[in-house]
Write a protein that binds this DNA or RNA. Structure first.
Lengths: 128, 128
DNA sequence: AGCGTATTGCGAGAGGACTCTCAAATGCAA
DNA sequence: TTGCATTTGAGAGTCCTCTCGCAATACGCT
């Protein structure tokens, strides 16, 4: 028989998952740390990185690359959608659906595989 | 009278400008170094950064933030357009025009200022 | 409850992008 | 051609993000 490495549930990992569930928006490792520290105050950034890594491996989280910023992570399995970034506080939010219908016209010889769309502006908290 | 600091034309700066003009696509500092070294072989990366910095100040170059990659720079003054990145070689290319007509629908309280659109795929060199 | 091992916390370390320091080189005005 | 301030090259240094090493902790199977 194969001896598989067993994984454990820890308060830290629970707190990190809860942070993503509650935030309901893509989080940077730093944001996840801050949010999860409300539950586990000695939580360290290394643990956040380790758990984000394993949650990505488990396909529970998906990386979101943002132009000019560190990678965010969001809960996997959502429908195709794009993101909004606040110019003021830098938070990233999910937008519903995708309005891009046609494949963009590319130069001769180029092949399309996917696209990303980012909207910038002011989020509701910063607009007040 | 005000004593203004005068700037000089150097072989290095000329080579860097020429690299951008000839490449005809957004370049990273590293790419600009490699291309400009064809003309000035002892060119150093520090000089590339310094000149890119001053060309941005002069508004001759404009930064292009790419998701998950270091900033590219492109020659200023072009019409609103978006970018293509090759999944294989990582080069960034300019696309003509902008197909996004309507302002995207945002959640309540969010304000729109701008958008960015990135297309991914395979460039003509890599598709061969 | 006891035990073995996965997991954590912390500090050190690695890697990338970019900046600084300073002596040497070089535009360029006179 | 001379003089001198700007610019360069090279390496060290900074900043940031992320990873590693290791002793201490704490899951969770039995």
């Amino acid at each position: 028989m194969t001896t598989s490495i067993q994984t454990r549930n820890t308060r830290q990992k629970d707190a990190i998952r809860a942070a993503f569930l509650e935030a309901n928006r893509p989080l940077s490792p730093d944001e996840a740390l801050t949010l999860a520290q409300k539950e586990v105050d000695a939580l360290s950034i290394a643990t956040v990185y380790r758990n984000i890594g394993s949650l990505v491996e488990d396909k529970w989280l998906t990386p979101v690359d943002v132009p000019g910023n560190s990678t965010r992570y969001e809960i996997s399995g959502k429908a195709h959608h794009h993101h909004f970034q606040c110019n003021s506080c830098g938070t990233v939010h999910e937008l519903e659906g995708c309005e891009i219908q046609a494949k963009p016209k590319l130069p001769r010889g180029f092949k399309y595989t996917s696209h990303e769309f980012f909207v910038y502006g002011t989020c509701s908290s910063c607009a007040k």
